[in-house]
Amino acid sequence: MTGLGRAGRTLRRTAWQALPTMIGIIILCFFLLKLVPGDAADVIAAEAGSATAETMAALRARFGLDQPLLMQLLAYLDNLAHLRLGFSARFNMPVSELIMARLPNTLMLMLAAMSMALVVGILAGWVMAIFANRWPDRMLQVVVLIFYSTPGFWIGLMAIVLFSVKLGWLPANGNMTIGADLTGFALIADRARYLVLPSLALASFFIAVYARLTRASMLDVQRQDFMRTAAAKGLHPVTIQLRHALRNALIPVTTMAGLHLGNLLGGAVVVETVYGWPGMGRLALEAVTGRDFNVLLGVLLFSSLLVIVANVAIDLLHAWLDPRIEVH
């Protein structure tokens, strides 16, 4: 079968599997919204200062809040199908526009952090596996364990003290130099400088996770028969490590990376606050302080859908990398 046909079939299968999860998440968000004390009518009444029981009832009828729960759920689903996530009273714009405006910043931060975590983590894990139980391995294990145990936002704050306050190398707040009208390479360099510390803070924990995973799965692969075969047919040790060991050891790492996307998004909330990064996480927090639950649940729903889509993409990548995976 061609690679394209296989990818198409995998896409259909994984999308089909993702559908119930997606519906489940929407229902969860709907019930969380219903749990919020006070409804839209209360909010408007509070803003107006006073309201009679009749106006409240009229408002509820207008928003469909007097309908049975099931009808409300259907209306909610209908809104989502048209990408209407509601209106934010605090920011005075539709929630979907608000999220879309913040999304690119969060995506950039996540992408940078994930790449950093994968590259550094896999390298560290690989070195640890090569020197298993000798001093480089033991030393790295201690470092990795410290990264594994330290809150990322605290590493971020300490990095600000060192790199911004003491050394003055890197900026500590925002995502670009405000007012500097830059173009071309200077623009990219400016953005990159602002990206270093936040992505380090976000990546620190995941570097440790991938280092531990890579070490374990590399040690596991070393015991496989095909490794002995490769050595027996006289391949160069570097070739064996790169093309046979690392490639096979990476599959559990990429699977885990997909599962971690949700956690990465959660971590971004704190890191964005530390660095004043104008992303979705900080939007969620601003929504909490403003008690704007439309925005808050919009962020929750949207980021969950993002995780699902990313996982479908990773499944596709796997099917393309390793044809055997389709059998499962």
């Binding site: 999860t21 956690n263 980021s303 969950s304």
Partner: peptide, 9 residues
């Protein structure tokens, strides 16, 4: 469902 939703959020 609960595993997909970002825990911290």
């Amino acid at each position: 469902v609960f595993q997909t939703v970002p825990t911290f959020l």
